[in-house]
């Protein structure tokens, strides 16, 4: 959008630029939402219904970009992943070793889920209880990792020389969340199955 007259301009912007905010990892969700609504109103295609075709199209694509930007940046995990991409980093590069304690937990829970699929009657009920306990444990672990992620975001934003170690840690935390979310999804699916 033109800062002088408010006319939408077609441009390739990254999501931070689309919202007019610095490329920082720490974001205030309320501020982000306000910006999104404010910009959304000002760029809304209805306001340019009588304008030239180029401006109408620019308004449409700017609104679409704004929505994608907001959806990606409001969630800390997708924001972190997107930010890594902007840094030219990939989550999976040099990052395929699963920490042993996490792997152990994943294999334990997955094996219990497999047990549930073959258990019947009273056995199934006992296995379900065990899985419910694992579910709580996995949820708590996801919560801890999200808090860890926010701390790491703040650390990166505050660092002047942008230590590469922080990126390694960031990738490790994001990976951990990805493994835990997959596990959590598998638990949900297993519990939905009737006995």
């Amino acid at each position: 959008m033109c800062s002088e007259c408010g006319t939408p301009i077609a441009a390739e912007l990254d999501y931070f630029a689309a919202l007019g905010i610095p490329r920082r990892l720490t974001l205030d969700p309320r501020q982000l939402e306000n910006l999104y609504h404010d910009l959304g109103r000002r760029l809304h295609p209805d306001r340019f219904a009588g304008s030239a075709a180029a401006i109408r199209n620019a308004s449409l694509s700017a609104t679409a970009l704004l929505t994608r930007a907001f959806r990606t940046l409001r969630d800390p995990v997708s924001r972190g992943l997107y930010w890594l991409e902007l840094q030219g980093e990939k989550l999976a590069s040099d990052n395929q070793k699963v920490p042993p304690e996490l792997a152990e937990m994943i294999f334990d829970v997955q094996e219990t889920l497999a047990e549930l699929r073959s258990a019947h009657g009273g056995d199934a009920a006992a296995v379900r209880d065990q899985i419910a306990a694992s579910k709580a444990q996995v949820q708590a672990s996801i919560g801890e990792s999200l808090a860890d992620l926010e701390r790491n975001f703040a650390r990166w934003d505050a660092s002047v020389n942008h230590d590469a170690d922080l990126i390694v840690q960031l990738k490790a935390i994001l990976s951990r969340i990805a493994y835990l979310r997959t596990l959590s999804r598998d638990i949900e699916r297993a519990l939905e199955q009737p006995d």
Binding site: K97, V98, A103, Q110
Partner: peptide, 13 residues
Amino acid sequence: GVVGAPECGDVMK
């Protein structure tokens, strides 16, 4: 060897 694909959360032993 225990490895995983962090993008999709798959794990392999």
